[in-house]
């Protein structure tokens, strides 16, 4: 047969040692892992582009009204923002450790680090809650609803629109991440993962790092305008 021939081996070989986590349409565990990981990286690219809209709005309004952004930024507490940065960085570290232990097949430390990550995410949200409620208390709302007596400038509302929408969408991502990591932690406790198969741990960790990266940019852009 000159044209297309068929592999008698490929398929049968894959079935010979068929691990339970291998889905039928993949030839090998390696292919499945690579596909999942590429899928996650592409998803992260879409996440970056989702946030890019807010970054563009930020850049436009900051270029137009730098003095307003400077004044409005002072209403944010940079200490709380900095604390939250450290909290998220720590959670990124613990989730990286979780992947490390998953690769080594150390179930106990994997589970510990996953729960630690979830806990740190919880700390972040608690701090965020206090920040938000303090703002609402002072009638600092986004856009047209901004009514804080202490700072009345045109376009302050835009700064807080950007602040609330950016940190709001980011916070939503933190909540989603907490949910995902809790699920992964429960699965890890159940013993779903091994040094052979830890794809869900790794791709959830990738997602969590992205949440961290977004905050790495939000912190100086929103809290540290001099």
């Amino acid at each position: 047969m000159a044209g297309v021939s068929e592999a008698a081996t490929g398929h049968a070989e894959a079935h010979a040692h068929h691990p339970p986590y291998l889905q039928h349409h993949f030839v090998s565990a390696e292919q499945q892992f690579d596909a999942a990981k590429l899928g996650m990286w592409i998803f992260l690219a879409t996440e970056i582009l989702l946030f890019s809209g807010m970054f563009v709005a930020y850049a436009v309004y900051r270029v137009w009204h730098p003095e307003v952004f400077q004044a409005a930024s002072k209403l944010l507490d940079w200490r709380l923002g900095g604390l939250n940065t450290l909290v998220l960085l720590a959670s990124s570290y613990t989730v990286a450790l979780a992947v490390h232990y998953a690769q080594l097949g150390d179930k106990k430390r994997l589970v510990q680090n996953l729960w630690l990550t979830v806990a740190l995410a919880g700390v972040f949200m608690v701090v965020k809650y206090f920040e938000y409620s303090e703002k609402f208390h002072h009638n600092i709302f986004p856009g047209g609803n901004y009514a804080y007596e202490g700072l009345q400038l045109p376009y302050v509302g835009q700064f807080f629109s950007i602040y609330f929408v950016m940190t709001g969408i980011h916070g939503l991502h933190v909540l989603v991440g907490m949910g995902v990591l809790t699920w992964i932690a429960l699965r890890a406790q159940r013993g779903d993962f091994s040094s052979e198969y830890y794809t869900p741990v790794e791709i959830s960790a990738l997602y969590w790092h992205l949440v961290d990266i977004i905050w790495i940019f939000l912190f100086p852009l929103l809290y540290l305008i001099h």
């Binding site: 590429l38 990286w41 992260l44 690219a45 970056i48 582009l49 890019s52 809209g53 850049a59 436009v60």
Partner: peptide, 20 residues
């Protein structure tokens, strides 16, 4: 994987640059 990520960043740059 790096390519996917970098192209994403590149597009943010395009979006930002042309709008500004």
């Amino acid at each position: 994987n790096a390519l996917a990520f970098i192209i994403g960043l590149l597009m943010v740059g395009v979006f930002l640059a042309f709008t500004l």
